[in-house]
């Protein structure tokens, strides 16, 4: 048998062993499937109905805004024009306003009653010249928007803890030292861990996605294969991040702290629960260094806006970068 054949045989053996361990751990396995389903249904119940009760205006510039923006009951969010118009087409905002050279440009969604009311109020209250634009598009429910977030969050926890924490547990228990005394190489061991967890993560995400969609029928207008590619790259990026965290860590408690330090910012700032539009610029910039942000932005673009491969290339490129850096660091620094 060739060296590659032997290497593949060893990798396959570790891959199968890790899968067996996971599948027989019924509590963990069940939780990975049940937890996201519960969250999706809970949010579907809590946030059922229209996405917002108040009027929402999205502003593109912040100077000399119309008086309407300051009205009681109006919530204002500032962002750039493409994002603002995306929000308008999904009816996540009722009116988009921009002030340029002393005139007021505004956009409404032709399908939105709230937009029509705000437009009327704007024409009565604004003395500067007005220029009208219009988009269309149906309102999305909160559940449509939040489902990619929950699937991504589940993937993040499954990938980071399922690899990072497990490898540290193996090390602390002496199992890695036992493996070191065999011809198994670091690359073979790490690759088997990555592939095993990727299989688990993708399977769990697919089951949750299909299962919840059968009941909630949330919006999915793009390519299912593109969504699968995003899940694949996102899963890989976060698994390799987990490996990089675990490559030298010897204490489960320390690993727990490190994993929390990585997951908590993603949970808050990657757009799992709410959009970061309107948050400070530095927050939005920081969010771009988190892999989950790219997973969720790409997934929402495909699911809600029918984005194609070209539209999400940058997100995929960032995720590939995370994979390469994470795997290289893991192999370089890994200690049995």
């Amino acid at each position: 048998m060739s060296a590659i054949g032997r290497s593949f045989r060893r990798m396959k053996a570790v891959f199968i062993a890790r899968n067996l361990e996971y599948l027989r751990d019924r509590a963990s396995f069940g939780w990975n499937l049940v937890f996201p389903v519960l969250i999706v249904f809970a949010l579907a119940v809590v946030f059922s109905g229209p996405p917002r009760a108040l009027f929402t205006i999205t502003t593109i510039s912040s100077d000399d805004l119309p008086e309407l923006v300051e009205f009681p009951g109006v919530e204002a969010i500032e962002t750039d024009r493409p994002k603002a118009l995306d929000r308008l087409s999904r009816q996540q905002t009722d009116l988009v306003v921009e002030v340029v050279d002393g005139s007021v440009n505004y956009w409404v969604n032709g399908n939105s009653a709230s937009g029509a009311i705000l437009e009327l109020l704007l024409t009565y209250t604004e003395t500067r010249p007005l220029k009208r634009g219009e988009t269309d598009g149906d309102a999305i429910r909160y559940v449509d928007w939040v489902v990619p977030g929950i699937l991504g969050m589940n993937m993040m926890y499954s990938a980071l803890w399922g690899v990072g924490y497990v490898v540290v547990r193996y090390r602390q228990s002496g199992y890695l030292r036992r493996l070191k005394a065999t011809p198994l190489t670091k690359f073979e061991f790490l690759s088997a861990q990555v592939l095993s967890r990727l299989l688990v993560t993708l399977t769990a995400s697919t089951i949750v996605f299909v299962g919840t969609n059968l009941i909630l029928d949330y919006k999915m207008v793009g390519s299912i294969w593109l969504l699968f590619l995003i899940a694949l790259m996102g899963g890989l990026a976060m698994i390799t991040l987990g490996l990089a965290i675990a490559c030298r860590t010897e204490s489960k408690e320390f690993a727990d702290g490190l994993l929390n330090a990585v997951t908590f910012p993603m949970l808050l700032l990657s757009g799992v629960w709410f959009s970061l539009d309107g948050s400070p610029e530095w927050v939005q910039m920081f969010a771009q260094v988190l892999p989950l942000t790219h997973v969720l932005e790409a997934a929402r673009a495909v699911m809600l806006d029918n984005a194609g491969f070209a539209d999400i290339t940058i997100h995929l490129a960032v995720l590939v970068g995370f994979c390469i850096v994470g795997m290289a660091l893991s192999i370089k620094l890994f200690k049995w």
Partner: peptide, 15 residues
């Protein structure tokens, strides 16, 4: 060429 029985070795859970 060598076989090692370590003093304290865990094995993978559930195997």
């Amino acid at each position: 060429r060598v076989g090692i029985q370590f003093q304290a070795t865990a094995l993978q859970d559930f195997l």
